[in-house]
């Protein structure tokens, strides 16, 4: 009886989303799945071609180049950004004078519109006089050609992604507010040092949020798009910055191959889904729900 009442309440609470899901999500999702089996340019009506798009993708060199680039990018940028974001959030959670100002400053890179940001980076990473290479030169390191050397374009993009961790940082910061000070104080009385406190109290307490950022990080880094799209049109030099989502976008809108792009979209969907499930399974053991 109690159970049924609860279930009805739960369903009622979820109703807006259930409606949103059906009204705004299902149709586009199913249509894109259907298009992935079609010859479809967005302008012409779709014509069923079976698994042709998937077969073609499998033999598409550019596709595999993009897969490789994306995996390299994600494998480095995701863990790095997570560590940096948590670190910064903890730093911003300390009790220091002027914290509101610091927090605002740390969030700034996330506020600047993408196009301005791309211009800024082109300027910072300039090989001759760029701010970064000038700074490196001052400490005796000869900076690489960030923008034109195929070996350095991906590291440049990873660097930019780390610098743009503002959103994840903010989420961590909010979650750190939920860590009861009483627990921290208790462990301090037990003689724990800063690292032990972090390891044994703080991290377990915010673990659901770490899990959230991990999942969003997987999705975001495998779908990396805006910055490479603006800064390296076409994935120059020599497709070293051509990523999965940029190729997908080009296929859909530049090459007018919406069906092909949809097939790419659904492959990526399956990959992300599997990775997310694995990541959730592995991390669930360490995730701690329900506070105390």
């Amino acid at each position: 009886m109690m159970r049924r009442k609860e279930a009805r309440a739960g369903f009622l609470f979820a109703l807006p989303w259930l409606f949103g899901l059906v009204a705004f999500m299902f149709y586009p999702l199913l249509m894109s799945l259907y298009y992935s089996f079609c010859d479809y340019s967005a302008l012409r009506s779709p014509v069923w071609v079976g698994g042709d798009n998937y077969v073609e993708l499998f033999h598409d060199e550019v596709f595999w180049t993009c897969v490789k680039n994306t995996l390299i990018y994600a494998c480095v940028s995701l863990p790095l950004s997570m560590v940096v974001a948590i670190g910064l959030a903890m730093l911003l959670n300390t009790n220091v004078k002027g914290m509101t100002v610091y927090r605002t400053i740390f969030f700034i890179p996330s506020l600047v519109p993408m196009v301005s940001l791309a211009m800024l980076w082109l300027w910072i990473l300039n090989g001759d006089y760029g701010v970064l290479n000038t700074a490196l030169g001052a400490i005796g390191i000869k900076g690489p050609n960030w923008l034109s050397d195929v070996a350095w374009t991906k590291p440049a993009l990873i660097l930019m992604s780390v610098w743009g961790v503002g959103n994840a940082m903010l989420i961590y910061l909010a979650s750190l507010q939920d860590v009861p000070t009483s627990l921290l104080e208790a462990s301090e009385l037990d003689g724990a040092n800063a690292w032990q406190k972090t390891r044994n109290v703080t991290l377990p307490m915010i673990s659901p949020v770490i899990q959230f950022n991990m999942v969003m990080g997987i999705i975001g880094s495998l779908q990396v798009f805006a910055i490479p799209f603006v800064m390296f049109p076409g994935g120059t030099p020599a497709r070293s910055t051509y990523f999965y989502a940029t190729y997908l976008y080009d296929s859909a809108f530049t090459y007018s191959r919406m069906g092909y792009a949809s097939a790419m979209g659904w492959i990526l969907f399956v990959v992300i889904l599997l990775l997310t499930l694995v990541a959730l399974k592995l991390s669930n053991r360490h995730v701690h729900y329900g506070g105390v």
Partner: peptide, 9 residues
């Protein structure tokens, strides 16, 4: 639903 890339939707 977040995992299907936006352009195809």
């Amino acid at each position: 639903t977040m995992m299907v890339p936006f352009p195809v939707m």
